[in-house]
Every structure is written in structure tokens, then in C-alpha cells.
Design a protein around this nucleic acid. Structure first.
Lengths: 208, 208
DNA sequence: GTATAATTACTATACCGTATCGTAAAGGAA
DNA sequence: TTCCTTTACGATACGGTATAGTAATTATAC
């Protein structure tokens, strides 16, 4: 497996590799994977978009699957946010960021791409889960666990259900084809929060 | 556009069409579309799987996109259920049926297939939305609207948010790669219900 | 000069859509 | 009943395009 970043400096005889080539290739690969899916992504087109030739690509990645996997490994799922002490507020911030990501060009398309490829190139969805799905969920779950530990949640509140509904509502909305309201994150958090918060504790949800 | 079902009886001179050929082709096309995606589905493979030759397929559908569209048009989103008078109960029944559908082989894969193809063959996701997405949502929404009209929901309960969370939680769960508990529908409905029901009205949710 | 990168050209294969030929099957006319 | 016309079907082949991956040659950096 070729390192995803170019090697640092010259390490031996012969022509050194251009430092920007790996990045350009990975960028092109990720874009095409997201927009066109794995099957339609082509090594010719990736090379062309990256401004190199195909053998140049093959010198770094042994196959199409290898390159697609490396491109996906460049993805980052989510960035931690500073805690405000208010769980609903933090959830909204996280989901607002998610909304931005998903509704950027190709934000949702990558999901379709890894899903459709699950049977043929399963390493793609595996990587996507590691890099994107689980980090996102972890962020949300941490907020909820803190709220729970702080006594803000009703007994038996189902955190898994909550996390999946928070994230999944965006997917479901996307599938409707309707325009996503800017208020969507707030609406979702408000509804979920009412379902899991301790009764009588709606506006003042402290985390630990 | 060729009718999706074979014509009824003989309508003119010449050899009549085999009544099972259309069905076999559509079945094969839908399976391949779901499992392999549109790009990887091939007319050669569909014809072969259906036990016919390519010209036979082309006699009925003018192009690959045409066939894929027709295959998708065979999909049905959801079947109405008899109302029990209890909204949570009805929601659970609907979602349990959805769970069965999604977690059947290829249940989720078709979603990935239409998503990844959105830019290239948008008629696929358009049809999927008409045939599957909107009917499913309508079923859930109707239950919720009845409950609202019956006074079971809190003022300002966000039905759109609820519907998207109910459905979307399955998608999000699928993306985790975890095994889906049999209790998932119940857990989701319970959590959503607590978020939208009139306070103090948790177990006795009457519809109109 | 040496080793590696990059370029150009190539092979093998798959696929879409179409054309052709021979046979099958139905209805209608003689 | 036989023959003719029409349409369907299987089998095969074809043209054109696209693509993964590779070989041979030229260029470049140290």
C-alpha cells in the first residue's frame, strides 16, 4: 500500500517525485468517486483531472480500488466543537455543520457511492464508516452522554435511537428531493430533545 | 415508451409476445440495478439473466435508461395498514414493515444506486421518490395527522421532522454497519412519540 | 552515469446499440 | 388444409467507444 502522502524529501537515487502529484490525484479521485460513483470513476479521467498520466497514478496506487480507498481515507468525518454546557445547543451546532457538509456539492453523493459499491468493493464503505459515520455519531453521542450524566435526560432515554434520528433525518430529507430549510437542525434537535429530556426540563439542559 | 407490462392478448398479425418475457427482463433489471448500480448493470447481463437475447430486450425498451426506469417503476413503496386507533401502534406497524423491506437483500442498495446516479440519470431518483419515498412518508404522515386532529399531539409538533426522523433512523442505522435490533421500530416510535405527544398523553394516543 | 518519473502507445476486454439470418407462431385468405 | 404475411425470438456478428492495466521510450533530477 502506497503511503497516502508523498514521501518527504529525496530518499534515493533517481528522479524525485513531484510533491503535489499525490495530492492532486487524491483530490481528483475523491471528487470523481463522489460525483460519479466508483464504477464510473475512471483512471483515465482521474489522471487527466490531476494533470498527470495514468502510469503516474499506477506508480503510486496499484489498482483502481486501491486509489479509491486512499481517496476515501482522506475524508474526515467531523470536528469537535467547544461545549457550551447546553446539550440542545451543542447538538444544533454539530448538526448545522453536518448540514453544511451534506449539502455541499457531492456531500450526499459519496454516501450513495459507497452504498452501491458495498458488494463489489466493500473496503470503501468500511472506510467510510470508520472515517465519517462513526466520528459523527461519536460527537453526538458524547453530547448526549454528558447530558445524561448531568441528569438532564429522562430515565431510559434511548441514546442510540436519538443519534440515529438526529443524523438520519438529514438523509431522509435529502431523499424527498425537497429543499432543506435552514432551520432543519433546530427543528430536529427540538423534537428529539423533547423525546429524551427529563420532563419539565426543556429549556435548561445542562451537561455535566 | 413501451408499456411496463406485456400487452393483453393478441392485438395484430404475427407471433404474439411471450407473456413472461417482460416480467423476466424487468425482474433481472431490478435485481441488477439494486445490486450493482446503474452503471454496472449491463444489457448483456440482464438479457442473459432473463434468458433472452439483447434484441429481445431492445424490442421492448429503447435504451438502458429506459429499461432501468421501467424496472424502478415496478417498485411499490408501502402498503396501507388498517388503523388500530393508536398512533404509536400504527407507526410501529408501518416501520416494522419498512424494516423488513430495507433489510431484505438489496433493500438499501437500491437507494445507493439511485443516489449515485442522480447526476447522470436523474429520472431514476425521480421515479424512486414518486414510487417509494413519498408513499412511505405519506403513510406515516397520515397517522400523525390523524393523531393531531384527535388532539393527541402537542401544539406545534413538527410532523415533517417526525416523519424524517422515523424513516431516517433506519438509514442512519444501516450506515453504521451494525446489526439492526428487532426492537428498532418500537424504540424509534417511542422516542419520537415522547417528543411530539401532548404531555401526559403517552400511552393512550388516540387518532381521530 | 544512474535511477526514477513521465509520456506515448498498446493490449485485452467489456459494453451499448444495431443488423442479419433462420425459425416460430399467430391470423387471414385462398 | 395450405400458403402467405406479419411479428417475435434466438443466435450471431458488427461498429464504435470506453476502460483497466501495461510495455517501451523519452525526459528529468541527483
Amino acid at each position: 500500500m502506497i503511503p497516502s502522502s508523498e514521501t518527504v524529501g529525496s530518499t534515493g537515487p533517481g528522479r524525485p517525485r513531484d510533491p503535489g502529484v499525490n495530492r492532486a490525484i487524491l483530490k481528483a479521485a475523491l471528487r470523481q468517486l463522489a460525483e460519479d460513483g466508483y464504477s464510473r470513476m475512471s483512471m483515465d479521467a482521474v489522471a487527466s483531472e490531476a494533470g498527470v498520466t495514468k502510469p503516474t497514478v499506477y506508480r503510486r496506487w496499484s489498482s483502481k480500488a486501491d486509489l479509491a480507498t486512499a481517496a476515501l481515507a482522506e475524508l474526515q468525518g467531523a470536528e469537535p466543537i467547544p461545549s457550551t454546557g447546553s446539550a440542545p445547543s451543542d447538538l444544533k451546532t454539530i448538526l448545522a455543520a453536518l448540514q453544511k457538509t451534506l449539502f455541499r456539492p457531492n456531500g450526499m453523493a459519496i454516501i450513495g457511492a459507497v452504498m452501491v459499491e458495498e458488494r463489489h468493493t466493500p473496503e470503501l464503505i468500511t472506510l467510510f464508516r470508520e472515517r465519517v459515520v462513526h466520528p459523527r455519531r461519536l460527537l453526538l453521542r458524547e453530547v448526549l452522554e454528558s447530558a445524561e450524566a448531568g441528569g438532564a435526560l429522562r430515565a431510559g432515554a434511548d441514546l442510540d435511537a436519538a443519534v440515529n434520528m438526529l443524523i438520519g433525518s438529514f438523509y431522509a430529507h435529502y431523499l424527498t428531493g425537497d429543499k432543506m430549510p435552514r432551520t432543519w437542525a433546530r427543528r430536529i434537535v427540538d423534537t428529539v430533545w423533547k423525546g429524551i429530556a427529563k420532563p419539565g426540563r426543556h429549556r435548561r439542559a445542562t451537561r455535566r
